[in-house]
Simulated scan of single mutants.
Amino acid sequence: MIVVGGGVIGLSTALVLAESGARVRVWAREPAERTTSAVAGALWWPYRIEPEPLVGAWALESLVVYEELAARPEETGVRLVEGVHQGMRLDGLGAWAARVPGLRAGDEGLRARLPLIDMPVHLAWLRQRLLEASGSVEERTVTDLAAVPAPVVVNCTGLGARALVPDPAVRPVRGQLVVVENPGVTTWFTSVEHSSDASTYFFPQPGGLILGGTAEDDAWTPTPDPAVAAEIVARCAAVRPEIAGARVLAHRVGLRPVRDAVRLERQPLPDGRLLIHNYGHGGAGVTVAWGCAREASRLARPAG
Results as ranks from 00 to 15, higher is better:
residue 2 I to D: 13
residue 4 V to T: 07
residue 15 L to R: 12
residue 17 L to H: 04
residue 17 L to W: 06
residue 20 S to F: 13
residue 21 G to L: 14
residue 25 R to G: 08
residue 25 R to S: 13
residue 27 W to K: 12
residue 30 E to R: 15
residue 36 T to V: 10
residue 37 S to Y: 05
residue 37 S to W: 10
residue 39 V to N: 03
residue 40 A to R: 13
residue 42 A to W: 14
residue 43 L to S: 12
residue 47 Y to C: 07
residue 50 E to R: 13
residue 52 E to G: 13
residue 52 E to I: 13
residue 53 P to R: 06
residue 54 L to F: 02
residue 57 A to V: 13
residue 59 A to G: 04
residue 62 S to W: 07
residue 62 S to A: 07
residue 65 V to M: 11
residue 66 Y to N: 00
residue 66 Y to K: 00
residue 67 E to A: 03
residue 69 L to D: 10
residue 75 E to Y: 01
residue 76 T to L: 03
residue 78 V to S: 02
residue 78 V to E: 11
residue 78 V to D: 13
residue 80 L to R: 00
residue 80 L to E: 00
residue 82 E to G: 13
residue 87 G to M: 06
residue 88 M to E: 15
residue 90 L to V: 09
residue 92 G to R: 11
residue 92 G to V: 01
residue 94 G to F: 09
residue 94 G to V: 09
residue 104 R to Y: 01
residue 105 A to I: 02
residue 105 A to Q: 03
residue 106 G to C: 08
residue 106 G to Q: 01
residue 110 L to Q: 15
residue 110 L to Y: 08
residue 114 L to S: 05
residue 117 I to P: 05
residue 121 V to I: 12
residue 123 L to C: 08
residue 125 W to R: 04
residue 127 R to I: 12
residue 132 E to H: 03
residue 133 A to N: 01
residue 135 G to C: 10
residue 140 R to C: 00
residue 143 T to H: 07
residue 146 A to H: 01
residue 149 P to H: 07
residue 150 A to S: 11
residue 151 P to L: 00
residue 152 V to P: 00
residue 154 V to N: 03
residue 155 N to P: 05
residue 157 T to N: 12
residue 162 R to C: 02
residue 163 A to W: 06
residue 163 A to E: 10
residue 163 A to I: 01
residue 163 A to Y: 04
residue 164 L to D: 06
residue 170 V to L: 15
residue 171 R to T: 04
residue 174 R to V: 11
residue 178 V to L: 12
residue 182 N to L: 11
residue 186 T to Y: 09
residue 186 T to K: 11
residue 186 T to G: 07
residue 186 T to E: 14
residue 187 T to W: 01
residue 187 T to C: 07
residue 190 T to S: 11
residue 191 S to P: 04
residue 192 V to L: 15
residue 192 V to P: 02
residue 194 H to P: 11
residue 198 A to M: 06
residue 198 A to I: 01
residue 199 S to F: 09
residue 199 S to W: 03
residue 200 T to C: 12
residue 203 F to K: 04
residue 203 F to C: 10
residue 205 Q to E: 14
residue 206 P to I: 01
residue 206 P to Q: 02
residue 210 I to T: 10
residue 214 T to F: 03
residue 218 D to L: 12
residue 220 W to Q: 04
residue 223 T to H: 13
residue 223 T to F: 08
residue 226 P to D: 12
residue 227 A to K: 00
residue 230 A to T: 12
residue 231 E to A: 11
residue 232 I to T: 11
residue 233 V to W: 09
residue 235 R to T: 01
residue 237 A to F: 06
residue 238 A to K: 06
residue 246 A to F: 07
residue 247 R to D: 12
residue 250 A to H: 10
residue 251 H to W: 05
residue 252 R to H: 06
residue 254 G to H: 07
residue 257 P to E: 00
residue 263 R to M: 00
residue 264 L to N: 05
residue 265 E to D: 13
residue 265 E to M: 01
residue 266 R to P: 08
residue 268 P to S: 01
residue 270 P to H: 00
residue 271 D to E: 06
residue 272 G to I: 00
residue 277 H to D: 15
residue 281 H to S: 08
residue 283 G to K: 04
residue 283 G to L: 03
residue 285 G to Q: 08
residue 286 V to W: 07
residue 286 V to T: 04
residue 288 V to M: 03
residue 292 C to L: 08
residue 292 C to R: 04
residue 293 A to Q: 03
residue 296 A to L: 10
residue 300 A to G: 02
residue 301 R to H: 00
residue 302 P to C: 06
residue 302 P to D: 08
residue 303 A to G: 14
residue 304 G to M: 14
